[in-house]
Structure formats: structure tokens, C-alpha cells
Amino acid sequence: MSAARYYVSGKVQGVWFRASAREQALALDLRGYARNLADGRVEVLAAGDAAALARLEIWLRRGPVNARVDALAREDADGAEAGEGFVCS
């Protein structure tokens, strides 16, 4: 199992980014969460198959229709933080 934490910058709050990321993650059988950060970014923690994480990362680079992704930062993460399922907070 692999895990990664992503920080997405741009117009990513108030455009259904977290809910859309959840849909993508669930379709890829990933666990984790998506949450808004106080600085305007969205944090996504995902754990699961490495190929599924790569596909999620591709999606995170563009986001949903109304979003504008300016930057995506990725760091390795501990899969134990992901919990069960995929939640938005």
C-alpha cells in the first residue's frame, strides 16, 4: 500500500473540489480525506494502490470543472492516517 498527501492551490474552495476528489478516490478504491485549509488550499490524503494514487494525482492537477489548479505539491504519507473510506471535512 502507498500513501500520499497532496496540497492543491488555486481556485479550489467553494467549487466542489473536495466532493469531486472524494468521488474520484472512491472510484479508485482509495482511503483518506479531503479538507479545506485556512490558507485557501485543499489538502488530500490518499492511501491505496500506487497506480490508483497516480491516477488521482493526474485528476488533482486539473480538478472539477469550476476549479482552477495553480499548483499541486505531493509528499509521502503514512497510510495509517487514512482511516477507513474517504471523507470530506
Rank of each mutant, 00 (worst) to 15 (best):
A4C: 04
R35C: 08
R41L: 03
Y7Q: 14
R5A: 12
E57V: 04
V65Y: 12
G79H: 00
V65Q: 15
V42I: 13
N66Q: 14
D49Q: 13
S9L: 09
V42M: 02
A73C: 00
A4M: 06
A54L: 13
P64T: 11
L37K: 12
A67V: 06
D78R: 10
R61K: 15
A25C: 02
G83N: 05
L28K: 11
A4P: 01
Q13C: 13
Q13S: 04
R5E: 13
K11D: 05
E81D: 14
V42S: 04
A51R: 15
N36E: 13
W59A: 11
A77W: 05
G10H: 07
G14H: 11
E84V: 09
Q24M: 15
E57F: 03
G85E: 08
G63W: 02
R62H: 15
A50C: 06
N66P: 05
G40P: 06
D78N: 14
L56D: 13
L37S: 10
S2Y: 07
V15P: 05
S2H: 14
V65N: 12
Q24D: 00
A34V: 11
A3Y: 12
A51S: 15
V15W: 05
F17K: 07
A51F: 07
L37Q: 15
A67Y: 00
A25I: 03
R5T: 13
R18P: 09
L30E: 12
R31P: 01
L30Y: 05
N36Y: 11
D70I: 02
E81N: 01
A71L: 05
F17W: 05
L60V: 08
A38V: 06
A27L: 08
L72K: 09
G48F: 12
V69F: 01
A3P: 07
G14Y: 08
E23I: 01
S89H: 14
L56M: 13
Y7L: 15
E23G: 01
E84Y: 06
P64A: 07
A3Q: 06
L53Y: 05
F17N: 07
A38E: 12
E81A: 12
R55Q: 15
W59K: 05
E43W: 09
D76L: 08
S20K: 13
V15I: 05
Y6Q: 09
V87T: 15
L53P: 10
L53V: 10
E84I: 08
Q13W: 03
E75K: 07
A77P: 11
F17S: 01
R61P: 00
R74F: 02
L30G: 06
D39N: 14
